[in-house]
Write a protein that binds this DNA or RNA. Structure first.
Lengths: 253, 253
DNA sequence: CGAAAAGTTGAACTGAATCAATGCCGGTGG
DNA sequence: CCACCGGCATTGATTCAGTTCAACTTTTCG
């Protein structure tokens, strides 16, 4: 797998219903026509290697990227080269849903692991939202959920300890991955390294590692290799003070 | 001024062009009809006392609140009673621009100082965005800017020191207040206490105080009472690694 | 004027960073 | 098939930025 490489039109294997459809249908009813449309979009995909940029800060995103498998993140680069991850993009998530309006990204985005990504160019994105109410509503809801996550992350960094922050992130990922069928009760595959986690949670890698050990010691969660085993979901949630309601915006009418 | 009190329909004094109009016109051209409409909205305002909630987490916001003078904040409440401020709402800012769609707020919002606030109920908000393209575009742009700020704050908390964070916030406030005519080169009135600042920047009040002293010692900024004196804007920006471009989203077409 | 909230200061303490070394594992090339 | 390499994970020792506690002053405001 050549880093940064991309090969065109990759067949969509496993996980029956497409992640994007699943995601948008969560908040808005999609017509059959809309579902079909989204499924067709998802065939024009690229398999992108790990750690390759999708969008670079300051550039024109030109449209939206849809993560269909794998995982990516939005991040901010500081002048001195240090980075900070400001959100995770999981299957079904859309990077630059505002690609229709925004011409300069205020963040970069990159894959974390090899990922299948569909690109929706600006004109098509506009057409989709203008012509299909279900899709427009779904996109809006997805954006609201994302914003709520952003606020939650901010509160997390602002007033929780390393252990609490980590537990909170693991709870959130459990919910989000379950929503697209990528996690069971027992746990899930973490698509990021401890280094990624540490730059997300604002701590050193050394302390990240120690915090993971502490979670294991408290029999809450156990990260072995790529797999996160949820040992005691209630305990994890209680450490994190986790309340999942922010992940599911309630829409009017 | 009774805390939590509110008296109806307060006359709009000073600062010529209404803050809301000024804010929305920043990214989108407003027709005369639209400007007039917004100005009329801004007459049905309430003067709200300091530290009164506008919206409570979990409640239905029912519409949007527009800050016309004063200042407010969005905040998150933790079970144990500690709070974290996730954004500031300055004159011209809109709280719950998504009031048209969202039925459950994932945050609370409260005034920081006595403020003039207009409320736009959901049906009216819908009508405004549906009928007036300029207003819809302005609102969208305002929301994008807000999101960019949220991401910046997250990166701030995640990877900057107390001094850097504080300098960054002061730079941001300078830009934002200048955009609505509430700050000059020399400085501005800070509408929040050191306690508020500390809750925002994720540090103890004691350390907040010491950080302010350090900024003064470095001849960058000097907070005296409510007034922030910018002593050396370049130095402040360099401490903060401040680049204001995130505050001005570039819109397509 | 008096009470409450905000700001200030010093001293002791601690969660997390930093430094540094070492182990592990998967991939690549010889 | 094995040796080597680079990224990731782990561990111990030390240091430091920021917290906590506690007392005190100043300002605000009813």
């Amino acid at each position: 797998m050549t880093a940064g490489g991309a090969c065109p039109s990759h067949e969509t294997r496993r996980q029956g219903p497409n992640a994007l459809v699943r995601r948008l249908a969560r908040h808005a009813d999609l017509s059959d026509a809309e579902t079909g449309l989204l499924n067709r979009l998802s065939t024009a995909t690229r398999l992108i290697g790990p750690r390759s940029d999708l969008v670079r800060e300051g550039d024109d995103p030109g449209g939206a990227h849809v993560i269909l498998s794998g995982a990516a993140c939005r991040y901010k680069l500081r002048p001195m080269g240090t980075r900070h991850i400001v959100s995770y993009l999981l299957p079904g998530d859309i990077c630059d849903a505002d690609g229709a309006t925004v011409q300069r990204a205020d963040f970069s985005a990159a894959t974390l692991v090899p990922s299948t990504v569909a690109f929706i160019p600006r004109p098509l994105l506009r057409e989709l939202t203008a012509m299909h109410d279900g899709i427009a509503r779904g996109l809006r809801a997805a954006k609201l959920a994302e914003e709520a996550i952003l606020r939650m992350w901010l509160a997390n960094l602002g007033c929780r300890s390393a252990l609490e922050r980590t537990a909170h992130l693991f709870c959130e990922l459990l919910e989000r991955l379950r929503a697209v069928g990528l996690a069971g009760e027992a746990g899930y595959d973490l698509p990021m390294t401890q280094i990624d986690l540490s730059i997300t949670l604002g701590m050193s890698t050394v302390h990240m590692n120690r915090t993971l050990h502490e979670l294991r010691r408290q029999a809450a969660a156990d990260l072995r290799g790529r797999t996160l085993h949820i040992l005691d979901r209630a305990r994890l949630a209680s450490i994190a003070e986790f309340d999942p309601s922010y992940l599911r915006p309630v829409l009017a009418s």
